[in-house]
Simulated scan of single mutants.
Amino acid sequence: MDRVDYQSLVIQDLNNLHKADELDLSPWYQRRSVWAPAQKSYLINTIFEQKPIPALYIRHSLDLEKSKSVKEIVDGQQRTRTMLSYCNDEFSAKHPEHSNQSVKFSQLTKAQQQKFLLTSIPIGYLLGATDSDVIDIFGRINSVSKSLNGQEKRNAAYSGEMKQLCLRQASSRVSFWRNCNVFTANDIARMGEVQFVSDLIYSLINGLSSYSTANLDNMYKMYDESFPQMDVINNQLDFVFDFAASINPNKISDTVFNRQPIFFSLLYVIHTKQPLTIKKVEKAIIEIDERFNSDTNKSPEDIEFYTACSATTQGIASRRIRHSYILSFM
């Protein structure tokens, strides 16, 4: 292969190429289109929000029999199909200028349609690529999923209302995570804070529960296309996090409460025990931290709490012990 030449095409260009039969969306090594409706809608919403999307990789070749050039989609088939099918009014997507209601292409204003069609899509042209080059590149691009953690896999697999709620709640609180020192930069880079929010949402829906990868996977799947409780859960999260953000961040960052499992328990207590005052919560945090770090005069309850913070911290038994203990100081 000679090189990769990065350029761009607007969505209307892709539409024109497809209508002219100059876009090969089904090369023999590609998967069939398998995106769920929620994934399609999420991509279109991403374009509406003017957020970046991954580049398409295209091998440009000539069909000598038909005397025309052909652009073969090496990577990005499903993204391309999604953009084309939206232009054909085949599904709807949420638009920020329509009160985030789902709309089809035909329901956009003329100005909105034009803006969508003129959206620039990054293209990587594989120049001089042989079939062997293409297979190697396709394999390299798609091998990244082998190293994804559980939350990154959920993020890749789902695009609907549950994923969007978790991402929105987690990403809007970056300053909070940093101030409280609950998550490291690497945790955030690997979506640890999104998984934390997902886990909290699961307990808000189902009552205090164990952490379980399978439970979170099922929750994302169940509420991918529709999450009727979204507004209620969103408001509950806003209240809990806004309350926690009013606590002196040093009371969390400099105490045992900067540990994710214990911080989770604090948030769940804030959710269940109201009314509370910031002063009362800060006093409780200090007292609990002092008892936790004390080597003497530990009560049976102190010892039980210490144990619940030190082993199998994500199980329901440990979570119930921590919840009851913290609650007793409120």
Rank of each mutant, 00 (worst) to 15 (best):
F176I: 02
D136V: 01
Y158P: 01
V182N: 08
F183Q: 01
R178F: 05
F196P: 08
I135P: 00
R190Q: 13
V182T: 09
G160K: 02
V194S: 07
S132H: 03
F176Y: 13
R178H: 12
G150L: 14
A157R: 04
R140K: 15
S172G: 09
Q195N: 15
E161H: 03
Y158I: 08
A170S: 14
I137D: 05
F176R: 09
L126S: 02
S175V: 06
K146I: 15
S172T: 06
Q169T: 15
V134C: 08
D199A: 15
L127D: 04
A185H: 06
Q164I: 01
A189E: 12
N149D: 11
C180E: 05
S145I: 10
C180V: 01
L126P: 03
G192N: 03
V134F: 02
T184N: 04
L126Q: 07
A156Q: 06
S172Q: 09
F176G: 10
L167V: 06
R140M: 12
A157D: 08
M162W: 07
L200N: 11
G128D: 11
S175M: 10
D187K: 03
N142Q: 10
S175P: 00
Q164R: 15
R190C: 10
R173D: 07
V182E: 06
K153E: 12
N179I: 00
D133K: 00
S172L: 12
L126R: 05
Q164T: 13
N142E: 07
W177H: 12
C166W: 02
V144H: 09
I135A: 12
L148C: 11
A189Q: 12
S147Q: 04
V197K: 00
Q195T: 01
V197L: 15
C166P: 01
F196S: 12
K146E: 11
D136G: 05
V144G: 14
V134T: 11
W177Q: 11
D133F: 00
I141K: 06
S175R: 14
A157M: 11
W177S: 10
V182K: 11
G160I: 10
R168I: 00
Q164K: 15
L127P: 00
A157S: 13
N179R: 11
I188R: 15
K163F: 11
R154Q: 10
Q169K: 07
S132Y: 02
R178D: 14
S171N: 09
N179T: 01
A170W: 07
D136S: 13
A156R: 07
I141D: 04
